[in-house]
Amino acid sequence: MGLMDQVELPQPVKYVFNWGRKYSLWCFNFGLACCAIEFIAASTSRHDFIRHGVIPFAHGPRQADLLVVSGTLTDKMAPAVKRLYEEMPEPKYVISFGSCANCGGPYWDSYSVTKGVDQIIPVDVYVPGCPPRPEALLDGIIALQDRIQHESLKDRIAGRRLDPVTLGADAPLALEGR
């Protein structure tokens, strides 16, 4: 990356730079299970996340900026996910799509399921649901784009990440305070 990992960009340059980055997210879909179907549904005409600047046709991890892990991660599959993540160039982002990728979901007591993809790779946005609706993925993408807009690329390349966002966690629960 040269200069960018050593000096902080001036604010106007950073703004334009991040604005350009957030609307050209080449997305590598790691379709593992049911959630992959909802991911495809989000990419087709009814929901169409290409209008948000997410391009779902990355040829492989080496051309991708965004990894969407959608589905159950098993212990047998985990090394492959880690390897594909490591093949992606920095700066790279991860959306954990669906309860299984977040925490194991309905297989929380299974002997062969990794309880959350964040055990092996860092996650930027968690999208809860089993499977989440395509709208939830769109919401997650917008949350990620919001982060990218306010991000310092210098920090990102140096490996300093912001805390992950969990969709729906910021909203107060209806039961709270009772």
């Binding site: 299970a33 297989y107 007591d109």
Partner: peptide, 26 residues
């Protein structure tokens, strides 16, 4: 095969008859 083995048959032994349906439809 086996990259998506989630242990359904074993898990079903720990769910009651109403809960199984939420497991098997996956």
């Amino acid at each position: 095969i086996g990259y998506m083995h989630r242990g359904f048959e074993k898990l079903a032994e720990y769910r009651d008859y109403r809960q199984i349906k939420a497991l098997v439809n996956r």
